[in-house]
Design a protein around this nucleic acid. Structure first.
Length: 272
DNA sequence: AGACGTACCTGACCGC
DNA sequence: TGCGGTCAGGTACGTC
């Protein structure tokens, strides 16, 4: 379940292995992912040198010499495997080979992810990126921005911070964890947050994500050749997935409810 | 503009 | 053991 910190970790890992290298082959096993892989993708990627690798929201952007950008998204179940020991597995949809003989494999059982290519100049206006809100770890994402963005929103704050137009990269885990850290109930209507609460929430989102990135970073060495599920931030989760366990602050039993068809975990004593 | 329901998809899990 | 049903959720899209 890759969220922003996991994508950041994968991006860093890719940078370490293939930045400055050249693609020598692209093998596509399945074109139909969340969006269909363009037929001309191989042609545009082959023989191109990688000039930059960046994360934006939960997308991985691989910039090429020819001014095109290879765009990857891991969806719910996607993985990037770098030089896996086993030759192949089910759901290896795209296999990239580089001139240092590294193999980069895009594997995604549920196919909610995507692999596509967009010209550098079209990126910002493309369907995928045009409507995205600010990066949570940027200075643009501050309490003034957040208050303004949510002032007309009557939906619960949990659903609101998971909305990519409000802020990108905050998925199911980090929305729950950030609300717990800031003592705000996920049920609160977004437009009822006070200035103080918005400040707390911004800090909580940033710290939670940053902590997770740091945790991911510390297990970087083990990340290659693993499923990507191991280690990580799981040990630091305080409410997510902890239904019927005790809150580590007040010993209240953690509640699991559904909001907009999705699971929410929270402590109704600590969060109001 | 914002809210909301639905669709996409497979694997894990559960009950019989 | 096997089989069918249900659930999980990031994102896009259509409708009101």
């Amino acid at each position: 379940m890759p969220e922003l910190p996991e994508v950041e970790t994968v991006t860093t890992e890719l940078r370490n292995h293939i930045l400055g290298k050249r693609f020598t082959d692209v093998h596509i096993n399945r074109y139909k992912l969340r969006i269909t892989i363009p037929a001309f993708l191989s042609e545009l990627v082959n023989n191109q040198k990688i000039t930059k690798i960046q994360r934006q929201a939960k997308y991985i952007l691989i910039y090429l010499d020819n001014e095109y950008v290879l765009v990857l998204h891991l969806g719910m179940s996607g993985k990037i495997l770098i030089n896996p020991k086993e030759p192949s597995r089910k759901h290896d949809h795209v296999i990239f080979t580089l001139n240092n003989n590294h193999k980069i494999i895009f594997n995604d059982p549920r196919r909610f992810g995507l692999v596509t290519i967009i010209h550098n100049l079209d990126l910002a206006h493309s369907k995928l990126f045009a409507k995205l809100g600010p990066e949570p770890l940027s200075s643009e994402f501050n309490s003034r921005y957040l208050l303004n963005a949510i002032k007309k929103r009557v939906m619960p704050i949990k659903t609101t911070i998971m909305n990519n137009q409000v802020v990108v990269g905050v998925g199911k885990i980090y929305s729950c964890e950030s609300l717990f850290r800031s003592g705000i109930s996920p049920l609160r209507k977004a437009n009822t947050l006070t200035v103080k609460e918005a400040e707390k929430l911004v800090v909580a989102i940033q710290q939670t994500l940053q902590d997770a990135i740091t945790a991911g970073g510390s297990s970087l060495k083990d990340y290659v050749n693993t499923s990507g599920d191991a280690g990580y931030f799981q040990n630091n989760l305080r409410v997510y997935g902890k239904a019927n366990q005790l809150c580590d602050v007040c010993n209240t039993i953690i509640t699991n409810i559904r909001q907009s068809g999705r699971s929410t975990f929270y402590c109704y004593t600590c969060q109001c």
